[in-house]
Amino acid sequence: MLILIVEDEKELALSIRDYLKGIQDITCDLAPNFSKAVELTELYSYDCLIVDLGLPDGDGLEIIKKVKTEDAQTGIIIISARDTLDDRLKGLNIGADDYLTKPFHLSELQARIASVLRRIRFDGKSILKEGVLEVDTVQRKIKVNGKEPDLTKSEFNILEYLITNKNKVVTKASIAEHILGEYSDMYSSYDFVYTHIKNLRKKLVELGCPDYIKTVYGTGYIFETA
């Protein structure tokens, strides 16, 4: 899968690339400015573009317009420091699939990319499989050995989040933000994440699913398949 990161801040772009590198078959190109981004999008057909709006030599929105007219199948995620509703709507109206406000967790970006790609290339890949575990991201249901345990909304969201970031340590803060949105700021402790994960693991293991979810020294969790 080919991803282009359009971001003028080198360290940010590199971090994103490093994080995504460990996942499946992702290859990342970097474009530090507008002209490079234009050049690369003309040369290659990307599956997904991660675009920062404030570029030194142009507006990221222009790249999105251009790419969307040429290949509507390209998934586009805006990453921007601008967080007003207006900016969001502008970006989404122009054809972006998602809008992520800086600063964001890398695991959140990965989840958004996975989700955008699933939405764009709707080719039966809406079901994430891991051994006996099947996660239906459209129906928002899971199956273990053919059985369907009842998961709460939060439990499902956490599971989906962990699976899209499998074999990566995902922090409690990022899980909290993922399921609560922007108001997770208000939370002083992430104990509820622990509660949800405890229940989730119990439900999975009861149906004979291997205990994929591991605690990482009280800091976060990892969905470990290796």
């Binding site: 360290e11 971090s15 600063p103 695991s107």
Partner: peptide, 16 residues
């Protein structure tokens, strides 16, 4: 915002 983002991402990467 940007330096903060960088610190956060690097720490996240380090965690991996």
């Amino acid at each position: 915002q940007t330096p903060l983002s960088i610190i956060r991402m690097k720490a996240e990467l380090l965690l991996q």
